[in-house]
Design a protein around this nucleic acid. Structure first.
Lengths: 189, 189
DNA sequence: ACACAACTACCTATATGCAGGTAGGTATTA
DNA sequence: TAATACCTACCTGCATATAGGTAGTTGTGT
């Protein structure tokens, strides 16, 4: 997904990266202005307010997720889940980042209504996809678990960002353990 | 634990509350100065730097956790876990707060080394207590699960804050579902 | 083919506001 | 009289945002 061609796209990519690392509010225009060799004001040319950039980052990430789901459309259920896990492993490896959803969830009480809506809808989209994928794997006999599909989708939604948080304080070992436990949830009994 | 008598303690309590709601960096001295009817500079009298207050908040929360473990020392394993869960339910109910550990984990890449150490040690303390409690319940026959005690402790460490994050975007229903699934982990087959 | 209008992608300079922090003073209590 | 618990009055730095300008490009009518 790192196909940033023009300045606008590069701002979104860099912005997303910083936000995932240090959070939406700690991130500032100066950092990316410096890296892109443009001025602070030029970022305002593309994104008049910080909220605009925040929304663009959420939308970009949502598009990337949709792309991931389409790319794996014909894969086995486990491979679909593994594709998602892989991106989380990438986040952790590259600077202990959080995912975009948990980044904005962390700042949820201090973002605008439009942003809250955007994150919530994005989170719902992922939840629905997870539930569908779990159901698919269950029906094909690939998975085995006792919880309801919806409940397990919820568990995944909580544990994936949870693993990233735990990994920040507990290091790679803690992160890996959590992800492994997560994989086991579809192979219980 | 809300037994704030003197100004110093009240600053810690209010500081903790704000940090859990909006994060360590978004929180500022003015807010609590206003609520306590003192001036910004007076907070610096007790906590010369923001880091000092951050460390005090972590330490206070750690003490509260230790108090919880001692209060439930002779309780059944499930009641111990339930006591911890209850505080998370309280966090969610009262303003969609995060727990202190996940609050600082969220800001992990932008806090000082001393704070990182304090959070990590605190997280380790909780993990160890969880593992001990899970082991206790398993050996007494109260619990039943197939994972290793350490792995399941890790799952709890990830899912409790995860539930709070999920609850922010998905509302009370999502939070409750996740917590229920968490409870089921000690009763699987 | 050429003049001119309009747009894109930046720039400089500056306003505004706020956050963390300090210096030094006062009032109260032990 | 010394410590404690505040205060007033600042400084500094930085972050978001705006106003207004320039250089180059693209489109359009005659």
């Amino acid at each position: 997904m790192n196909t940033a061609q023009n300045t606008r796209d590069r701002i979104i990519e860099l912005g997303r990266d910083y936000m995932q690392r240090i959070g939406y509010h700690s991130f500032n225009y100066k950092q990316i202005a410096l890296e892109l060799n443009i001025k602070n004001a030029s970022i305002h040319h593309y994104f008049p307010s910080k909220e605009d950039l925040g929304l663009a980052v959420i939308e970009k990430d949502r598009q990337d997720f949709i792309y991931l789901t389409q790319k794996t459309k014909k894969a086995k259920a486990m491979d679909k889940l593994q594709a998602l896990i892989a991106s989380y492993e990438y986040y952790f490896r590259e600077g202990k980042k959080l995912c975009v959803i948990s980044t904005f969830s962390s700042s949820y009480n201090e973002i605008t209504e439009r942003m809250k809506l955007a994150v919530s809808q994005y989170a719902e989209l992922v939840t629905v996809w997870l539930a569908a994928t779990l159901k698919e794997g269950l029906e094909s006999g690939e998975f085995s678990f006792k919880e309801s599909v919806d409940d397990l989708a919820n568990v995944w939604m909580a544990m994936m960002p949870g693993a990233l948080l735990v990994g920040r304080t507990g290091g790679k070992a803690a992160f890996d353990k959590t992800i492994n436990s997560l994989r086991q949830t579809v192979k219980s009994s």
